[in-house]
């Protein structure tokens, strides 16, 4: 009961933050609020027992991507321009897409239900074998780092390449030439 109340409050704050991000014009404030959004999402993930995901969300969303956003902002303007066209068509499209997604969740099994198809395929196997085979107490970590080790290595390579490209685009570690011109 308590967790449900916490979830509801966190989700409400998440929605309020998203609306504020959409409405604010000051892009520095938007970058700061995006960091808050990530922290809220991380809290929600912890509440849903997905600690690994929450940790990634806090490190990437709250830490690195905020800094990258600010680095990108230094290259562009600080104020968002007003939309020149009416925005009700995109709003309608988003509302319809969201309604379709919510309609799609109605068929899903209940959260954490034991007879869900996702829990009956390979999950019992992992639960039975993870501890004796790998010795890692957290099964999610065992799957990520041991059974799908090559997959995780590939993901890490992709993220490393993407981070390198973004850092090169933003020009980190290079002295800014704009200072001399001023």
């Amino acid at each position: 009961m308590n967790e449900i109340a916490v979830d509801i409050v966190l989700l409400a704050l998440l929605a309020a933050t998203a609306i504020a991000i959409a409405r604010l014009r000051n892009l520095f404030a938007v970058a700061m609020l995006a960091s808050v959004f990530s922290l809220l999402a991380a809290g929600l993930f912890v509440s849903l027992d997905a600690v690994d995901v929450a940790f990634t969300e806090a490190a990437v969303g709250g830490g690195i991507s905020t800094v990258l956003m600010l680095g990108a902002l230094a290259l562009t303007t600080r104020e968002e321009k007003k939309a020149s066209r009416p925005t009700w068509v995109p709003l309608l499209l988003c509302a319809v897409t969201g309604a379709a997604l919510i309609y799609g969740t109605l068929d899903m099994p209940r959260f954490g239900a034991a007879d869900a198809p996702a829990q009956q395929h390979v999950a019992p196997d992992y639960i039975a074998r993870a501890m004796p085979e790998t010795g890692v107490p957290n099964i999610v970590t065992a799957v990520l780092a041991s059974y799908r080790g090559y997959d995780t290595l590939g993901e890490t390579t992709v993220i490393f390449a993407a981070a390198t490209a973004v850092l090169l685009l933003l020009g980190f570690g290079r002295r800014k030439r704009g200072k001399e011109r001023e």
């Binding site: 709250g62 830490g63 905020t66 800094v67 600010l70 680095g71 980190f172 290079r174 002295r175 800014k176």
Partner: peptide, 20 residues
Amino acid sequence: INFVGTIAVLKFFRYRLLGR
């Protein structure tokens, strides 16, 4: 992470860049 992130943001506001 929170501490390091805040330091990074403040350093960015101060010096306008993060590297050297």
